[in-house]
Design a protein around this nucleic acid. Structure first.
Lengths: 211, 211
DNA sequence: GTCTATACGGCGATAGAC
DNA sequence: GTCTATCGCCGTATAGAC
């Protein structure tokens, strides 16, 4: 017989505030600091209330991951759409953005111990990789890569190199980082040149014509 | 006044066996499973004995990391020496080797919460990167890379791409992996061709001439 | 629907007996 | 060198007050 335990509504403002607290804790002190007591304390409530909304810590971590993933995916799709003529630069910048990167690394570490987190990361990574790949394949002819390089491999590099740079910097290693970044940015300037007077977001021609 | 607490000898066989148990636990169930009680149980001893040899968990993790790091560095130096004419392949294979990779990822996650681990990782990474870089710079003229690519960037890629492949595979992502590996291995075959009848370790000419 | 209060076993760590 | 006892904090669960 399943437990008749009550769980708080997903639309509760309290619930959302608790997720905010948990996210800050995870960023500042690592996932190990995300405990019922710590989350409750930083939200000024009792530990029991946290476990009312999230019966297990797994539930809390999953909710956290899903909320952040959806925001990131939305942001990615919006960027790829607005700057449809420079998908490589969008992918590079998206994966360079550090605000979510530290969190992702925490979740990757968590995935080693929590199956539910692992499954969710697999799913969201697949979705993100898919929309990025489609955007790159659409402009593949402009990418000027040698025949041996596939669109998937180029995407793999544009998505994972920023993550490795961040990972190394997080432990104080920065040898060759500026060289690497410069190399990529020169490549981007070459295949996706910035046009003068166009330093903001670009719009699809179908949306509204620029003057 | 510092605690007069007793600590077991570093040459103890029991201590080494406990480190073996801890390493297996960390690989199988993640660093969170490395507890005094778990380590003791898998070694058939009492928890108090584990904290006799390792007063804090930090001490245990540090000892684990140092033991593994020294072994890896020795192995790397030996390979670079024995196969002195193909440093890129050695670096690629060294970073592809998976036996220590899962452990390294665990330690990287640990580094977010334990300063001592972070400092030790920084130090050992610097040392490893240094001997790899010197080996590559010695053969840089043969690497046939465009002018914009620096030896440091090539090393960064040869060292970190295998890690990212493993990290993604650990969460079930494998898109474009075979493409990427094939690309690198074709490059290696090009700049460091395997010679027929020479499929084992190569020796420095000064060591002993081959027949 | 929200929140408070309490209980249980596992944890890191310590002190000291054998 | 080995083992036992103990402390306070933790994740987790549940009962019940508002």
């Amino acid at each position: 017989m399943p437990s008749p335990r009550r769980v708080g509504s997903e639309t509760s403002k309290t619930r959302d505030a608790l997720l905010d607290s948990a996210e800050r804790l995870m960023l500042d002190r690592g996932y190990a600091a995300v405990t019922y007591r710590n989350v409750a304390a930083s939200g000024g409530v009792y530990a029991g209330l946290v476990s009312y909304y999230f019966p297990t810590l797994d539930d809390l971590f999953l909710a956290l991951l899903r909320r952040r993933s959806e925001r990131n995916l939305d942001r990615l799709v919006a960027s790829l759409d607005a700057r449809f003529d420079e998908p490589l630069r969008v992918v590079w910048e998206f994966n360079t953005d550090e605000s979510s990167a530290a969190l992702i690394m925490e979740f990757l570490a968590l995935a080693n111990h929590r199956k539910s987190i692992k499954a969710e990361i697999t799913e969201v990574t697949r979705r993100v990789r898919k929309v990025q790949l489609e955007a790159i394949e659409r402009h593949w002819s402009r990418c000027r890569m040698p025949d041996e390089m596939s669109p998937g491999t180029l995407l793999f590099l544009m998505a994972t190199v920023p993550k490795m740079l961040q990972l190394e910097e997080s432990v104080g290693i920065c040898e060759a980082h500026t060289d690497t970044i410069r190399l990529v940015e020169h490549y981007l300037d070459d295949v996706e040149p910035k046009r003068p007077g166009r330093n903001g977001a670009r719009r699809r021609p179908s949306a509204r014509a620029t003057a």
